[in-house]
Design a binder for these strands. Sequence first.
DNA 1: ACTTGATAGTTACATCTGCAACTGGATAAT
DNA 2: ATTATCCAGTTGCAGATGTAACTATCAAGT
Lengths: 170, 170
Amino acid sequence: MRTADDRLTRTPRPESESMPTKARTLRLQHYLPYRLSVAANAVSRVIQLAYEERFGLTIPQWRLVAVLADEGPLTQQELCGRTIMDKVTVTRAAQGLLRRRLVKRLPNSADGRSHRLMLTKSGEALHAEVAPLALDYESKLLAGLKPEEIAKLEQHLRLLERAAAELRKT
Amino acid sequence: MRTADDRLTRTPRPESESMPTKARTLRLQHYLPYRLSVAANAVSRVIQLAYEERFGLTIPQWRLVAVLADEGPLTQQELCGRTIMDKVTVTRAAQGLLRRRLVKRLPNSADGRSHRLMLTKSGEALHAEVAPLALDYESKLLAGLKPEEIAKLEQHLRLLERAAAELRKT
DNA sequence: ACTTGATAGTTACATCTGCAACTGGATAAT
DNA sequence: ATTATCCAGTTGCAGATGTAACTATCAAGT
């Protein structure tokens, strides 16, 4: 902690939030990866609690349900691509959904290694229940933003994602 | 759900990205909590790999170092507040840093239950090495954004964080 | 046909994270 | 002073997640 005594001797911090990024000193509160992580964590937690207690769904499970409802039967491989989740995560989420008979497997005649996952009736029913709640959460989270700000935010998040993917190759 | 065969009969989706949130059908690709989580994950992963392999630091450890460098000695309790991490996470991160002698404990005469953590010389040296790298990562991530867009983004992330905290109470 | 290398999905293991219980010291009220 | 309650930090336990190894199938080249 900046103790009571050294507050006056500590070097001043001339930079403001709007200064160019380079040459800034590092302060966690304004460090983008930190802010991003904190915001994402807070949002995920809320949603996780809601899905978990009301529907017994984990977030990976919910993602599979959402994508399958939107796009129809897909292989796990395809689900990996759609949800940016590891194949292991997809396997486990799928197993949970299979146990609860929310999805079923369609044998894939084209490739004996894989199968396509498809929502069952009760899976569709669950989705019909969860989706409005999910949209409601989203609109509450975004309540303070104008539509064009929301669009910008989504765009910027995608940009960060791509930039991170680029950096990773380095 | 759409099967392979009914792709053509499926009802069209008139909504665009910029439509108001309400009345949208749910599509994961445009669902904000999803986009936020994916972006944050991608960014965290890159940074985690960098810190881990070059400095042997976990992200919680790095956060403590950053805050202590910025603010001086703090109790773990105070560090929890600054980093929005669980006290357990702080304890474990602090233990790692203590083992490596990157921080030391100052007994807290005011309260025998707690102590203040302070960077050692080598902790400061490490910080001096990591901080420029961290800022460099940040500016690469934000390369496509104008300063005012960056400021907006930070502001919107904070808004989401607050909204999530509000929702959680509900 | 057979070998080689790639790929879909699963399993095993090691790690991380968070909650909840616990310990020891602080604080307040009698 | 004594008791009760609260709080900082630690530890233990359970659930989630990622990496790597493994199995079964596919595809290509010989």
